[in-house]
Design a protein around this nucleic acid. Structure first.
Lengths: 242, 242
DNA sequence: CGCAGCCTTGAGCAGTATCAAAGTCGGTGG
DNA sequence: CCACCGACTTTGATACTGCTCAAGGCTGCG
């Protein structure tokens, strides 16, 4: 596979970026946004391509112009664990950059994704100029930590059936962006293996439990697409309301 | 149990705090350290007492003058999960404060601990005055996130025996501060239940596996104290070198 | 001394992983 | 256009890890 890195004049302009309203960079002046536009690079990653690898030293930060990226780690036996997703408008890799440590996980495109890259030098320059930016990143990181800790207690205490229900609900809320017009509802599109790598179980177990959920009329499936029919019951199974 | 909150004149003085060299506040001017000293309060928590509860709204940040605190969450079935420890010199609760969300976990003293408290107002004042402070906290939070993600993959993929070996090694390195003069080595002092709440398993399973380790001459025990005799083999079991 | 709280050991069972094999789907090339 | 190939999905059988429940032992303290 070959990556398509755009020429500077083709780069998406940060001043007019659709993600600007939601982005950490929304507080920047137009001059600085222009400055970033000039200094950044921008790459189209095809589905399955890797943005950065676990173990590499980071050389800058990534900002997702559009697309979906999975952040995953490889276990000692080769089995993957997806720790989180990053989507349009989100930053990736800044915690590693600031800590001067290697990437603790790999970032892989789940669909064709445009990702902008800003070098460490240019990023830290902006960071020092805008103290508010540190605070925003602090907030975001704090939220990621809370989510990670919730995942820890879920893995430690909930059986797979509950974790799968939980995962489906979370994915449906934050990850699913596809809207099925026929069914008039959102859908989740991931391979069974990837689902297993989020839930922390074997692929076969995910399949069996999805079949159970389908028989119980809680979900319906169509190829890889999963539709949630009965979120209330799924929430109960996931023990999300207590 | 009754908490001993000190009078202002008895408070440990931030200017002369032993933790200052390692603290996030080391970059502050003497004037500001004095200012904090005046505005903070300071409480002695006896072993087992709670500093803050999961679900409460934070009203400020905590700084551990001395002692050991466990940060833990309660699962839906009442079973606890220890997500992390905080020790002398560390801050607690700032990620919640900045995000304006409730505490996601409970903080309980593992031994008699002196904890200073600085109100939200005074903390944010300092935070805005010292942009470098945000960056330091960002680094610390980034490291906590990396550790949390490592815990996630460990829970998802390693069997209990490996996780227990891993936990013993980590505790021995970062948590254990007691030094046994007779044996000339460090020791870990925690109840079996607390160990289980870190590893994410049942108390009985921890006991059985500790017995195995003892028979294999990897550890020795003396009441609650655990000594690691063969760290190399334990690391192999924990799959920490690969 | 006796109680309470922890630690320890045992037996049985439930939930999951693993291995193996068959079925499905989409794409590619003859 | 159809047959085949490979990758993914599904189902089944089996084994094992680790949990739960139950009972007994140890230790410190009132």
């Amino acid at each position: 596979m070959k990556m398509a890195t755009l020429l500077a004049k083709e780069f998406p302009n940060c001043l007019e970026c659709k993600t600007k309203p939601f982005s950490n960079f929304s507080i920047l002046s137009n001059d600085d946004l222009y400055d970033i536009s000039i200094h950044k690079s921008c790459t189209l990653y095809k589905k399955g391509q890797v943005v950065y690898y676990e173990g590499e030293y980071p050389s800058g930060i990534y900002c997702i112009h559009y697309g979906k990226i999975k952040i995953h780690k490889i276990g000692y036996n080769g089995k993957a664990q997806i720790v989180r997703f990053a989507q349009t408008g989100e930053f990736m890799g800044y915690q590693m950059l600031l800590n001067n440590v290697r990437h603790s996980a790999t970032a892989t495109a789940l669909e064709d994704s445009m990702v902008c890259f800003l070098s460490k030098l240019n990023f830290t320059k902006i960071l020092h100029k805008y103290p508010k930016l540190s605070e925003n990143l602090l907030n975001r990181l704090g939220r990621l930590l809370i989510e990670a800790e919730e995942k820890i207690i879920s893995l430690a205490q909930k059986p797979v059936r509950e974790r799968l229900a939980e995962t489906l609900i979370i994915l449906n809320k934050v990850y699913s962006t596809e809207y099925d017009l026929n069914r008039n509802c959102k859908s989740i599109t991931l391979s069974r293996e990837e689902l297993a790598d989020i839930v922390g179980t074997a692929t076969e177990t995910v399949i069996r439990l999805l079949s159970d959920f389908r028989e119980e009329k809680l979900i319906s499936t169509q190829g890889r697409k999963i539709f949630l029919n009965d979120i209330v019951t799924l929430r109960k199974i996931a023990k999300l309301d207590y």
